[in-house]
Design a binder for these strands. Structure first.
Length: 240
DNA sequence: ATCAGCACCTGTTGGC
DNA sequence: TGCCAACAGGTGCTGA
């Protein structure tokens, strides 16, 4: 069943993509960027349950919301059980039009740039990590995991981190994101990648979803709190 | 600037 | 087995 709201309100009409060729595929933060010849870009955000799949003829997904057909008869399908995902056709620079912050894996996000992002900010560090307009690409699972690895409490005010803590956090973010990508993501429930395969990073989670279970480092039970309506997990001993 | 609350949606899970 | 509430990889809006 196709779903009209899958196309973002701010999108150019998708008709403008008809007849174009895909020039390259990239990513910025959580947006998949499909650059077309002629300069426009199709940005796809999977949100919670979206999937982008290249399907063979006849294959169907129960939650198909948008289908893109190609000259050779193949199709690109956007499926999304919860209908939160969005597709948006852009005219200019995707990063600017989407209002996204620097990508968490961008080498330009160095100690100086990271310090500038955190400076004087009173918001909890975890809330800041999830703010896509400041740093793009970190979701709830990886924010929790990186803070554990950096031994920093999620509620710490961003501006209160020492230089050493900031360095640990930046390294932890890179480490966690790169390992999760290697393992093709985290399948807590039903996530599968573009090949239809579940990820394997869930086996390596240290805190996310582990409320009450022993900390992998010190055996203290992991705590669960809520921070800006998101499940937040940490070890009360290891993380200060 | 910041956050709580709610909205958007459906599927799964656990308690009774 | 069935019903119902709680919860979930995310984000955007309103109002305090």
């Amino acid at each position: 069943m196709h779903w009209p709201r899958t196309v973002d309100r701010a999108s150019l009409p998708l008709d403008a993509a008809i007849g174009r060729t895909i020039a390259r595929v990239g990513r910025h933060g959580k947006f998949i960027l499909i650059a077309l010849d002629g300069g426009r870009t199709l940005a796809v955000h999977l949100r919670m349950t979206g999937r982008l799949l290249v399907a063979g003829r006849g294959e169907r997904d129960a939650h198909e919301r948008l289908t893109v057909g190609f000259d050779d008869g193949s199709t690109l399908r956007f499926a999304d059980a919860r209908k939160f995902g969005r597709v948006r056709l852009l005219d200019g620079d995707p990063k600017a039009e989407l209002g996204a912050g620097i990508d968490a894996l961008d080498p330009a996000l160095d100690a100086v740039a990271f310090a500038a992002l955190l400076a004087r900010r009173k918001t909890p560090i975890k809330t800041l990590l999830l703010d896509q307009r400041r740093i793009a690409g970190i979701g709830n699972i990886y924010a929790n995991e990186a803070l554990f690895r950096a031994r920093i409490r999620p509620r710490r005010r961003a501006g209160s981190l020492t230089a050493a803590e900031r360095a640990r956090l930046l390294r932890a973010l890179r480490f966690v994101l790169e390992r999760a990508i290697e393992r093709r993501g985290t399948s807590v429930a039903d996530y599968v990648d573009a090949e239809g395969l579940p990820g394997e990073f869930q086996n390596l989670l240290a805190v996310y979803g582990r409320a009450g279970l022993p900390c992998r480092r010190c055996r203290t039970p992991i705590k669960r709190i809520e921070l800006t309506q998101r499940g937040t997990f940490y070890c009360p001993v290891c993380q200060q």
